[in-house]
Amino acid sequence: MTTQAPEASRTETTPAATASATRRSGSLAAIERLALPALLVLVVLFFTVYPASREIYATSANVSVVLGNQSVVLLVAVAILFPLVAGHFDFSAGATAIFASVVAAAGMARFDLPVVVACLLALIAGVLIGTVNGLVVSRFRMNAFVSTLGMATLLGGLIQWYTGGLAIVGISQSMTDFGSASWLGLPRVVYVVAVVLIASWYVLTHTPYGRSLYALGSNERAAVLVGIPRPRYTLIAFVTASVLASIAGIIVVARTGGANADNGMSLLFPALTAAFLGTTGFQPGRFNVLGTVVGVLFVAASVSGLTLSGAHDWVDQVFNGLALLIAVGLSSYLRRRREGATS
């Protein structure tokens, strides 16, 4: 009997203690999940009342401009999410977007191809780039950090060679019309991006494929040992990334009426920042679409506010750099904590 007494009292007290602990950590966790969107709201509120920026900041015109400009970054950010979830960087996504924009613009302006064919060519370019990226990582087991950086450099070089550093202009009218049209007060491209975002969210959270990517990203060897086909799934993740980046490139053409000779880094870094910032919200410690969207908006709202307040050009870069550093730091801390590596 003496051995049973503590046994009984333990089974009574433990669930209660655990429940109260769960409740307490539950509210803490809720604060943590919503810290990033709350910060976004604070930034927006601040610049709405801040004297130097309040006249323009919250106007529908500014919101429309910001969202239109960010739609491209948002697409690139969601694109790199797929390899990131599977545990790989894709530094070539920015260059892929620009490359696709050059293909689409050149198709229309230099070869007089119909809009649909030109855009299709841009998408095919994306599939090819993604296939190379994916095969290099999944079959030849190269480190994606290095191989995609190589791909980015290669694409940047090809863009330079083909354009000679000049913008390609003279694309078809229907394309620019689409890019500049609004619908319910927002640029039409925003809706295109929204559809892609929802599709990506669905794939990552509500399909066995998406869930397998998270498993691969968490522990590749363990994922193989539970029967997840690593090479194929990794390849698909890279192809998805490049195709989404190509869509971003097509949107660039539609919005700017051409293609600029650029290496794409100005797209890549805000996208990386947003993806890592996104891991601090909603599902702390893991890459997720909703967090990434808030991450992009947070950076955009801050930069727009700073610009309207009369900050210098360099502030943009400094802000982006700091945000990336903090985001990566927080992201890896949160992940380590989930793994139980911190006390």
Binding site: Y214, A215, S218, N219, R221, A222, A223, L225, G285, R286, R335, R338, E339, G340
Partner: peptide, 8 residues
């Protein structure tokens, strides 16, 4: 290294 998805 081969079994756990520690952060999941």
């Amino acid at each position: 290294t081969e079994g756990l998805f520690a952060d999941l």
